Measured scan of single mutants.
Amino acid sequence: KEWNEKELQKLHCAFASLPKHKPGFWSEVAAAVGSRSPEECQRKYMENP
């Protein structure tokens, strides 16, 4: 399903605030978004950083 504005906001906010070198980075991003898997978050971010 399409990403909504709130999900995208959470994605970018989590990406900006979490340490990128940490193992499980995308899992933490997904936990912050709440409604998406780590894979979905990574794919979406890579599509549209």
Rank of each mutant, 00 (worst) to 15 (best):
E5F: 08
A16N: 12
E5A: 07
S37P: 04
C41K: 01
K44N: 03
P49Y: 02
G24K: 14
S35D: 14
E28L: 09
N4T: 12
A31K: 15
C41A: 03
P49M: 02
K22N: 15
E40Q: 10
V33W: 00
L11N: 01
E2L: 05
H21R: 13
A30K: 02
A31T: 09
N48G: 12
V33F: 00
S35K: 12
S27T: 13
C41F: 01
A30C: 04
K20N: 11
F25Y: 12
K44T: 06
M46C: 10
K1V: 05
V33C: 05
Y45H: 15
E5I: 11
C13V: 14
S17P: 02
H12P: 01
G24W: 04
N48M: 09
H21D: 15
H21I: 14
K20T: 10
G34N: 03
K1S: 10
R43V: 13
F15E: 11
A32H: 12
H21Y: 11
E5P: 12
E47Q: 03
K22H: 14
G34L: 02
E7H: 00
E7R: 00
A32D: 06
Q42I: 08
E7T: 01
E2V: 09
Q9D: 13
V29D: 00
A32P: 01
N48P: 15
K10H: 15
Y45F: 13
E28G: 08
N4E: 05
Q9K: 14
S37A: 04
S17H: 12
S17F: 10
N4M: 03
S35M: 05
A30V: 00
K10L: 09
G24H: 09
R36H: 08
S37F: 08
K22F: 05
E47F: 06
A14H: 03
K20A: 07
S27F: 13
K6P: 05
A16L: 09
P19K: 13
E7Y: 00
G24D: 15
A31M: 14
K22I: 05
P38H: 05
S37W: 00
P49K: 02
K22P: 08
K44E: 14
M46R: 13
E39W: 05
H12V: 06
E7M: 01
P19V: 09
W3C: 00
W26M: 03
P19T: 06
S37R: 08
Q42L: 04
P49T: 14
R43W: 06
N48C: 14
K20F: 03
H21T: 14
R36S: 03
P38K: 12
V29Q: 02
E40R: 00
K1H: 00
P19G: 13
E5Y: 11
H21A: 12
K44Y: 13
K44G: 03
N48S: 11
Q9P: 00
F15I: 13
E28R: 12
C13R: 15
W3K: 03
Q9T: 10
W26K: 04
R43Y: 12
E28A: 07
E7L: 00
E2G: 11
C41Y: 00
K22G: 11
V33S: 02
E7S: 02
F15R: 06
E2K: 10
G24N: 15
K6I: 13
K1N: 15
R43H: 15
A30Y: 00
K22E: 11
Q42P: 00
K6R: 11
S35G: 14
Q9Y: 03
K1E: 06
L11F: 03
Y45L: 12
P49H: 08
